[in-house]
C-alpha cells in the first residue's frame, strides 16, 4: 500500500456506461488523491451524475476499471461502496428532520449496550453525543451547538454539515458531494466550502460536483471537466483561469457572458 500522499486513492480507467442507445460515459479516466479536493464540472448531460453514481455503487459501469487504494474493486452497490469507505452525500441529504443531530449521525449504526438482544438493546445516548461533539469539533463545525435539537430547525448549511459529518464519523476515505452549495446563501456556502476543505485536510479524498465555478475555484485542488461523456481536460486550480475551464466545458467556444466571476 503506497503511503505517499500523492498516490491515487481512487483511479478510474476507461469507464463506459450506456442507457440503451445513449452513451452517458464514453471511456472516462479520473484520479483522486488523499487529501485532495477534486471538482467535477461539466454542462448538463456531460455525465457527472452518472460517473458519481458509478463510484457510489448506485449503478455499475459497462466497461472500465475502478482501482481503490491501488486494488481493482467492484462497487456492486451502495453497501459495497460504504464497506470500501466511499460515502456519498446526495443533494437531498437523506436525513430525518424529526431526529436530532446525534440520532441522524448514528442512524442505522447506533451505539448500543446490554441487556436485551438484537434491536431491543439500549441506546448509549451519552456516548453517541460525545462522539458527535468530537467529530464536529474536528471538522471545525461550530454552528451546531445544540446537537440535541431536531434537524428540522437547522439551516441548509447546517444540514449539509450533518450529512458530511456522518460520512466522517464512519471513517470514510472518499467523500462524494453532489452540488453541496446549491440553494445556499453566501455565509452558508462559506461554511460548507470550509467543511469540504477540512475533509481534505484530514486526509480524505473529496469529489465535489458543482455548477458554480467561483465555488469550484475556491475549494478545489484540481478540476476535472467532462463533456459529452468524455474527459475534456483536467486543470490544476493554482495554474488555471476560470475561462480555460469554461472553454473546456463548452468545447472550446468562449461564450460571451459565460465568464465565471
Amino acid at each position: 500500500m503506497p503511503a505517499v500522499n500523492s498516490a491515487p486513492l481512487l483511479r478510474l480507467e476507461g469507464i463506459r456506461k450506456s442507457y440503451g442507445a445513449v452513451h452517458a460515459l464514453n471511456g472516462v479516466d479520473l484520479e483522486v488523491r488523499r487529501g485532495e479536493v477534486l471538482a467535477l464540472v461539466g454542462d448538463n448531460g456531460a455525465g457527472k451524475s452518472t460517473l458519481v453514481k458509478t463510484i457510489a455503487g448506485a449503478h455499475t459501469a459497462d466497461e472500465g476499471r475502478i482501482l481503490f487504494e491501488g486494488d481493482e474493486v467492484r462497487v456492486s452497490g451502495p453497501q459495497a461502496a460504504a464497506e470500501l469507505g466511499i460515502a456519498t452525500v446526495y443533494q437531498d441529504l437523506a436525513i430525518c428532520d424529526n431526529l436530532d443531530v446525534v440520532a441522524n449521525l448514528f442512524l442505522g449504526r447506533e451505539q448500543v449496550k446490554a441487556p436485551l438482544a438484537g434491536r431491543l438493546r439500549r441506546l448509549s445516548n451519552a456516548a453517541m453525543e460525545q462522539r458527535t461533539r468530537e467529530v464536529l469539533a474536528e471538522l471545525s463545525v461550530t454552528t451546531l451547538r445544540d446537537v440535541r435539537r431536531p434537524v428540522s430547525g437547522l439551516s441548509g448549511g447546517q444540514r449539509q454539515a450533518v450529512a458530511v459529518a456522518r460520512a466522517v464519523l464512519w471513517g470514510s476515505k472518499l467523500v462524494l458531494l453532489d452540488e453541496p452549495t446549491a440553494a445556499l446563501g453566501v455565509e452558508q456556502t462559506d461554511m460548507v466550502l470550509g467543511l469540504v476543505r477540512s475533509l481534505a485536510e484530514r486526509g480524505l479524498g473529496v469529489i465535489v460536483i458543482s455548477h458554480n465555478l467561483s465555488d469550484v475555484f475556491r475549494v478545489a485542488d484540481r478540476i476535472a471537466v467532462l463533456r459529452l461523456g468524455r474527459n475534456a481536460g483536467t486543470f490544476v486550480r493554482a495554474e488555471s483561469e476560470p475561462d480555460d475551464v469554461v472553454a473546456a466545458i463548452t468545447g472550446g467556444r468562449l461564450l460571451s457572458g459565460a465568464k465565471a466571476s
Binding site: 437523506a94 442512524l107 442505522g108 447506533e110 448500543v112 434491536r119 431491543l120 438493546r121 439500549r122 441506546l123
Partner: peptide, 14 residues
C-alpha cells in the same frame, strides 16, 4: 430507549 424505537421515529420522519 432502544435502537428499534429510534428506527420507528426515523421511519416516521423520512
Amino acid at each position: 430507549r432502544t435502537q428499534l424505537g429510534r428506527h420507528l421515529f426515523a421511519i416516521g420522519g423520512d
